[in-house]
Amino acid sequence: TGEEYIAVGDSTAQQVGDLTFKKGEILLVIEKKPDGWWIAKDAKGNEGLVPRTYLEPYS
C-alpha cells in the first residue's frame, strides 16, 4: 500500500536502485525518506528511488 503520485517530469535512473519514469506516469510511493528521495513502484511493478521534486499528489 502507499500513496499515488503523478510524475511532473521525466527522470532517468542515475545509479542502481533508481527508478526511471516518464512525465504523466502514476507512481505508488511506498516510503518517504527525509533526504528527498522516495521509494516508489510503477505500474509494471518496478521499484526504486525517485526524486520527490518530480512528483505531485494524484487525485
Results as ranks from 00 to 15, higher is better:
Glu31Pro: 00
Phe21Asp: 01
Ala13Gly: 14
Ser11Glu: 03
Thr20Phe: 08
Asp42Lys: 01
Leu55Ser: 00
Lys33Trp: 07
Glu25Thr: 07
Gly24Asn: 05
Gly24Trp: 05
Ser59Asn: 13
Thr20Ile: 10
Val50Arg: 00
Lys44Glu: 10
Glu31Asn: 10
Gln15Ser: 13
Gly36Ala: 04
Ile26Gly: 01
Ile26Val: 09
Trp38Tyr: 06
Ile30Gln: 04
Thr12Ile: 13
Leu49Met: 10
Glu47Pro: 04
Ala40Val: 14
Glu56Val: 13
Ile30Cys: 05
Lys44Tyr: 14
Val50Met: 02
Thr1Trp: 13
Ile6Leu: 07
Glu56Asn: 06
Trp37Ser: 08
Arg52Gly: 15
Glu31Met: 12
Gln14Ser: 12
Glu56Lys: 11
Gly24Leu: 03
Lys32Gly: 02
Leu28Asp: 02
Ala7Pro: 01
Asp42His: 02
Asp10Val: 03
Asp42Ser: 04
Glu25Ser: 07
Val8Leu: 13
Trp38Lys: 00
Tyr5Trp: 13
Thr12Arg: 10
Val16Pro: 14
Leu55Asn: 01
Tyr54Gly: 06
Val50Ala: 05
Tyr5Asp: 01
Leu28Glu: 05
Arg52Lys: 14
Thr1Asn: 12
Gly2Phe: 13
Ile6Trp: 05
Leu28His: 08
Ala13Ile: 08
Asp10Gly: 06
Ile39Leu: 13
Tyr54Arg: 08
Ser59Met: 12
Leu19His: 02
Gln15Cys: 14
Tyr58Pro: 05
Gly2Gln: 09
Gly9Asn: 14
Thr1Gly: 12
Leu55Pro: 01
Leu28Ser: 06
Gly45His: 03
Glu4Ile: 14
Gln14Trp: 12
Tyr5Lys: 01
Trp38Ala: 01
Lys33Gly: 11
Gly9Trp: 14
Val50Trp: 02
Gly36Asn: 05
Asp10Cys: 06
Arg52Ile: 11
Lys23Asn: 05
Pro57Cys: 07
Gly2Pro: 12
Thr1Lys: 12
Thr12Asp: 13
Ala40Asp: 00
Val16Glu: 13
Leu27Asn: 00
Gln14Lys: 11
Lys33Phe: 10
Phe21Gly: 01
Lys23Gln: 07
Leu27Ala: 00
Gly36Tyr: 03
Gln15Ala: 12
Asp42Phe: 01
Ile6Ala: 04
Trp37Leu: 11
Ala7Cys: 11
Ala43Pro: 07
Glu31Asp: 10
Glu4Asp: 06
Ile30Met: 09
Ala7Lys: 02
Gly17His: 06
Glu4Pro: 14
Tyr5Glu: 00
Gln15His: 13
Gln15Leu: 10
Pro51Trp: 15
Gly17Pro: 05
Gly45Met: 03
Leu55Gln: 01
Leu28Lys: 07
Gly17Ile: 06
Tyr58Lys: 08
Glu47Ser: 10
Asn46Thr: 07
Asn46Trp: 04
Arg52Gln: 15
Glu3Ser: 08
Val16Lys: 12
Ile39Asp: 02
Lys41His: 06
Glu25Trp: 09
Trp38Phe: 05
Glu56Asp: 05
Leu27Lys: 00
Asn46Val: 07
Thr12Lys: 12
Tyr54Asn: 07
Leu28Pro: 00
Asp42Leu: 03
Val29Gln: 00
Tyr58His: 09
Lys33Ser: 10
Asn46Leu: 07
Ile26Gln: 03
Glu56Trp: 08
Ile26Asp: 00
Leu55Val: 06
Ser59Gly: 11
Ala40Asn: 00
Ser11Pro: 04
Tyr58Cys: 06
Asp18Ser: 14
Ser59Phe: 13
Thr53Arg: 12
Pro57Ser: 07
Lys44Leu: 12
Ile6Arg: 08
Val29Trp: 00
Asp18Tyr: 15
Ser11Ile: 14
Val8Cys: 10
Thr20Pro: 10
Glu56Leu: 11
Glu25Asn: 06
Asp42Arg: 00
Ile6Gly: 02
Gly45Trp: 02
Glu25Asp: 15
Lys22Cys: 08
Tyr58Ile: 10
Leu55Cys: 04
Trp37Met: 14
Trp37Arg: 10
Gly45Thr: 02
Glu56Tyr: 08
Glu56Ile: 13
Gly17Thr: 07
Val8Phe: 04
Gln14Tyr: 10
Phe21Ser: 00
Gly36His: 04
Ile26Pro: 03
Asp35Trp: 03
Leu55Arg: 01
Gly24Asp: 05
Pro51Glu: 14
Trp38Ile: 02
Asp42Ile: 02
Ser11Asn: 13
Lys23His: 05
Gly2Asn: 09
Glu3Ile: 09
Glu4Ala: 13
Lys32His: 04
Lys33Ala: 08
Gln14Glu: 12
Gly2Arg: 09
Val50Cys: 05
Ala40Thr: 03
Leu19Gly: 01
Gly36Ile: 04
Ser59Ile: 13
Thr12Cys: 14
Ala13Val: 08
Leu49Val: 08
Ser11Gly: 07
Asp35Ser: 07
Thr20Asp: 08
Ala13Cys: 11
Gln14Val: 13
Glu4Asn: 09
Glu56Ser: 08
Gly45Pro: 00
Val29Tyr: 00
Val16Ala: 12
Lys32Gln: 06
Lys44Met: 12
Gly17Met: 05
Leu19Pro: 02
Leu19Ala: 01
Ala40Lys: 01
Ile26Leu: 08
Lys41Ser: 06
Gly45Arg: 02
Gly9Asp: 12
